[in-house]
Amino acid sequence: MTGRDVSLALLMVVVAVVIQTAVFGDGRINPFGSSPAFVLVVVLACARYIDPAPALLLGFTAGMLLDLLGGSPLGLWAMSYTVVVYVSLRFRDRADDGPLVIGVGVFALTLLANALFLIVGTLFGERFFTSTAVIKNILLPAVYNLAVASVVFPLVTRLLGSRRHLGWSS
């Protein structure tokens, strides 16, 4: 892993944040009232190829950007994404790499990120649980992320994976 890889990963995350906040969401691409967690997929894809410390910082930064450009208190997405990246780092050294593992991983980690965000947000006074739509907003992004991951992971592999491949199994 080089500084160039980390810079490239950071650039991809920034582009993902712009796409997430400008293209996805209510009034944009938002099928069935929910949108994919595009940034999370990019973070998870990048985290396969960079060392643990930069990967954690990348997750934290991505979450912070979402917090800054969203309506939630600062730090909530940062916290969720940091936890999710940490979990993914632990698993990438143990699980066999492959489409199925990646799919299940992306699905489960998206669920985890959304659930953590809701729980921590509720502790900080956000009222997410007043509507049953909250379940839909946890599940649907995880499903959408499967489709997004099928495009993003190969792309990130092409950009970052040529020099070094840690993968979810290294």
Binding site: P52, A53, L56, L57, P73, L74, A78
Partner: peptide, 26 residues
């Protein structure tokens, strides 16, 4: 050692995020 370093960083980042959220809400 690498695992240990990343765990330490993980805890630091969690604390920072938690403090940011607390300050922002307050």
């Amino acid at each position: 050692q690498r695992f240990d370093r990343s765990t330490s960083l993980f805890i630091v980042l969690l604390v920072v995020a938690f403090m940011l959220a607390t300050f922002d809400v307050r």
